[in-house]
């Protein structure tokens, strides 16, 4: 084995950085865990009662996180205690809400996006509303949603719908409005009717843009679901993190954070793959 070639592999550097990071983390946190006396009063107030009774208030070392991670993964699908579901159920719950909210947004965004992209009058009429609604943080809708739907799960889905809508809507509109003139000319010369024009020319030509919008939307939705579930929800990974925080289970929180990252990466890679399969090649 050629050592220099081995060291030249890009993942070797990534692994080295990871090892150094974990080692530094271990050194900084091992042993010197702050007892109750070391508690910051502000932190105690935030954490409430639990901070006072917890012995391990400091950041846990990576070994403890790994041990906790193993424990959570072994019991990931445990549902023996309905008040303490396995972490997989929470993640699936969150994914399900993201999927539902996203699907609703897709159903609205694609036809509406085509209308915006193909008919300047529709664009002019709707553009002011889009410009005002788009910059609103999806979480700003949360209290209103809770009031209207009276259900934290449905409210979370609504929030996902709102935040997933804009990237897909705008990308579809831009894609449909900028279909190459030569393809539009082909459609005109060979006399395609309006339905054929949209389904056989405009739609396939816009797929790459739509899929980019889909990727952005799902990325944002996965961001937002965690925050949305921290407000009032009784399940989902956002609820899980908030609950573990209340129990001062920092190790569990860190495990959940890492899992959120890995799943987000998986979603993005999967959607990139699907997007490449659905898009035309030139």
């Amino acid at each position: 084995m050629n050592v220099r070639r081995f060291l030249g592999r890009p993942w070797v550097a990534s692994l080295a950085i990871f090892v150094v990071f974990v080692a530094v983390w271990q050194v900084l946190t091992a042993g010197g865990s702050g007892g109750p006396g070391a508690l910051d009063p502000e932190y105690a107030r935030l954490a409430g009662q639990s901070a006072a009774v917890q012995q391990t208030g400091a950041i846990p070392p990576p070994t403890a996180v790994a041990a906790r991670g193993w424990e959570l993964l072994v019991n990931a699908f445990d549902r023996s205690n309905p008040n303490n579901l396995g972490i997989a159920w929470h993640l699936l719950q969150s994914l399900g809400r993201v999927l539902l909210g996203f699907a609703l947004a897709l159903i609205v965004a694609v036809p509406l996006g085509f209308a915006l992209g193909l008919f300047p009058a529709v664009h002019q009429a709707l553009n002011p509303f889009i410009q005002v609604l788009r910059p609103i943080s999806p979480l700003a809708w949360m209290p209103l949603a809770l009031y209207i739907f009276r259900d934290s799960g449905i409210s979370a889905i609504f929030i996902i719908f709102i935040c997933a809508l804009w990237p897909m809507l705008i990308n579809t509109a831009v894609g449909a409005a900028n279909v190459r003139q030569e393809w539009v000319n082909v459609s005109r010369v060979f006399g395609l009717d309006a339905f054929q024009h949209v389904t056989r020319i405009i739609f396939p030509a816009s797929v790459p843009m739509i899929m980019t919008g889909v990727r952005i939307s799902v990325g944002i939705a996965w961001f937002v679901i965690v925050a949305a579930e921290m407000v009032g929800a009784q399940s989902g990974v956002g609820y899980f993190i908030w609950n573990e925080w209340n129990n001062l289970q920092l190790s569990s929180m860190i495990v959940a954070i890492v899992l959120i990252g890995l799943i987000g990466l998986g979603l993005d890679v999967g959607l990139a793959w699907i997007g490449a399969r659905l898009s035309f090649r030139e």
Binding site: E182, W183, N185, V186, I201, P204, F280, E282
Partner: peptide
């Protein structure tokens, strides 16, 4: 067409 204008899909 000059640029062949085939539909790539």
């Amino acid at each position: 067409f000059q640029s062949h204008a085939l539909l790539p899909w």
